[in-house]
Design a protein around this nucleic acid. Structure first.
Length: 209
DNA sequence: ACATTAAGTGATT
DNA sequence: AATCACTTAATGT
């Protein structure tokens, strides 16, 4: 059953020997929406492969203000943990389950081993670094160049993609936290979007049209 | 019925 | 775009 899940996610990338190894050493963990998977400052000896669901990766400043950077989706891995893991550094980001998810944890030693034994693994790691860097750049662009109203709309549409639903069960307050702004600002801009017929507002609920 | 939480709004910086 | 100060609306106990 675990094997099927790994196969369906990775059979196009990994040779069957590697998939067998992944199934052998991987520890499957089912997490619920809003579960904390990895906190800032935490050490880790395992690497997560996302089999299903989505993980929100966020940063935090000295005052405890948070800002979400990007999401990990199925087939993704948190590559930041590769580098830091090998140097036994502490995590610089936080990972929270955005929805119910299945995560396969791989022990760090295996990763090093596979880097040598499996070409497909090397390629996977490099590619994953690449996509993560792209997402990072996108996050920077968003923060640096986009105004709050654009950022808000992007956030909503991103979330629709992640949740695979146009109905978002969230509050203005929660959105404000993700974007590191105030609730009042979010409320006003949402109202504007509603007037533009882009969304519909309810209590604890937003429908993106 | 009352308290709590979410959301709407004008005014000010 | 943020903050204050207040109102209104929805929901839980």
């Amino acid at each position: 059953m675990l094997k099927e899940k790994v196969t369906s996610n990775f059979s196009h990338i990994f040779e069957s020997d590697l998939i067998d190894e992944i199934v052998q050493v991987g520890i499957l963990k089912k997490v619920k929406e809003n579960d904390l998977l990895l906190d800032i400052g935490q050490k880790f000896d395992k690497i997560p492969l996302v089999l299903s669901g989505a993980i929100k990766i966020s940063r935090e400043d000295e005052n405890g203000d948070e800002i979400s950077l990007y999401f990990l989706e199925q087939g993704d891995t948190c590559n930041i943990t590769f580098g830091s893991g090998l140097n036994s550094e502490k995590s610089k980001v936080r990972g929270i389950a955005e929805r119910d998810s299945e995560i396969l944890f791989i022990p760090l030693e295996k990763l090093e081993e596979w880097m040598i034994t499996y070409k497909s693994w090397r390629i996977f790691v490099i590619k994953s670094y690449n996509t993560r860097l792209s997402e990072m750049l996108e996050a920077i662009d968003t923060l640096a160049f986009m105004k709050m109203d654009q950022r808000l709309y992007k956030h909503l549409t991103d979330k629709v993609k992640i949740m695979q639903s146009t109905i978002l069960n969230t509050t203005h307050e929660q959105i404000a936290l993700d974007l590191n702004t105030s609730r009042v600002v979010v409320s006003r801009l949402l109202k504007k979007l509603e007037n533009e017929q882009k969304i519909k507002l309810f209590r604890n609920k937003i429908e993106v049209l």
